[in-house]
């Protein structure tokens, strides 16, 4: 099976044209003091783009400090590439400025929509997987790439429902988008697993059938089993099932960068690093052991806004 994987035709194509910085972590405010004091050994950081647009203050200072010392990739949550609202050019120009300021390796967001009629739900809402959606997204990705003057990298989100009018599998849909709009893919392995359980498809079939040479980056994260479905919670360790899937994806996409997402109940920085470094074992097909975590009341996606620290306010 291994030889089949490395001989997959798509593996021979030139990888989508980005560097591979290695193993990275999300830049989150609880870790700012540790990072500034210790300049820890981590290959790169991913930032939530919206947390650093329109801001000054401590977060902006830390961002500049980090950008001087580590490679940064930008990961957005409000592009709403699939929405039928007009594209927000002001927002895109701010993304572009932030990318220049941080010398971002790449700019990513999700293959989803987040709002309509001028509203933003701040959630990653699923696209109907049909011809109309496909054409719409492809045209929008091309437009965004023209404004950003760089390729967009799109992530497969977790989803909790599918549409009656779906005519594509998700892997076919993202493949068409990537190939026809000529963009990169951020393969979130945990999301593939979560969606595979929620929709009853084969996660390995998904991994087998995407254009591997376009995979720029992978995400790994923890999730929560609710009994009837799985929620992408980013609040715990990566499960063994996801590590297995990651092992296989890494065989297909050996040059893709890897990032551990952990956005709620965030542990100490060194605990995160320890979890991230399990990826090295997984890449050698030594799948780390981890438990499946259950919570029937879990809800999706942590809030991606960094909350201010109470220590930062005093009476003069």
């Amino acid at each position: 099976m291994f030889f089949c994987l490395v001989n997959n035709p798509s593996s021979d194509k030139k990888r989508f044209d980005f560097p591979n910085p290695g193993l990275g972590l999300g830049l989150r405010s609880p870790h700012y003091p540790y990072i500034l004091q210790n300049q820890p050994q981590v290959d790169w950081f991913e930032i939530i783009s919206e947390n650093y647009i329109d801001i000054g203050g401590w977060a902006a200072y830390v961002l500049d400090w980090v950008a001087e010392r580590y490679p940064i990739a930008m990961h957005g949550v409000s592009l709403s590439i699939g929405s039928t609202d007009e594209i927000n050019v002001t927002y895109l120009n701010k993304l572009k400025s932030l990318a220049a300021r941080t010398r971002a390796l790449w700019v990513s967001d999700h293959l989803c929509w987040t709002g309509i009629m001028g509203h933003n739900t701040h959630d990653l809402l699923p696209m109907p997987l049909n011809e109309e959606s496909l054409k719409h997204v492809i045209q929008r990705v091309k437009m965004v790439q023209e404004i950003l003057e760089r390729p967009l990298v799109l992530e497969n989100p977790s989803s909790y429902l599918s549409f009656v009018d779906d005519t594509y599998t998700e892997w076919d849909f993202i493949t068409h988008v990537a190939e026809e709009a000529d963009c990169g893919i951020l393969l979130d392995v945990n999301n593939v697993y979560v969606s595979s359980v929620n929709h009853g498809f084969d996660a390995y079939q998904y991994i087998d059938n995407i254009p591997h040479h376009r995979v720029v980056q992978m995400h790994i994260a923890g999730h929560t089993h609710c009994g009837t479905h799985i929620i992408d919670t980013h609040d715990k360790q990566v499960t063994a099932e996801v590590w297995k899937l990651y092992s296989k994806a890494k065989q297909y996409c050996p040059h893709a960068a890897t990032l551990l997402e952990w956005d709620s109940q965030i542990p100490d920085f060194n605990d995160l690093l320890e979890e991230l470094h399990k990826a090295k074992a997984a890449e050698k097909m030594q799948v780390p052991t981890a438990s499946e975590f259950g919570n029937p009341n879990a809800h999706p996606h942590p809030v991606v806004m960094d909350i201010v620290n109470t220590e930062n306010i005093t009476l003069a």
Binding site: E50, I53, D54, S78, N88, H119, N120, T121, V303, M305
Partner: peptide
Amino acid sequence: NPSGSYSLY
């Protein structure tokens, strides 16, 4: 007051 911004801030 539904959000109309890209930012939760």
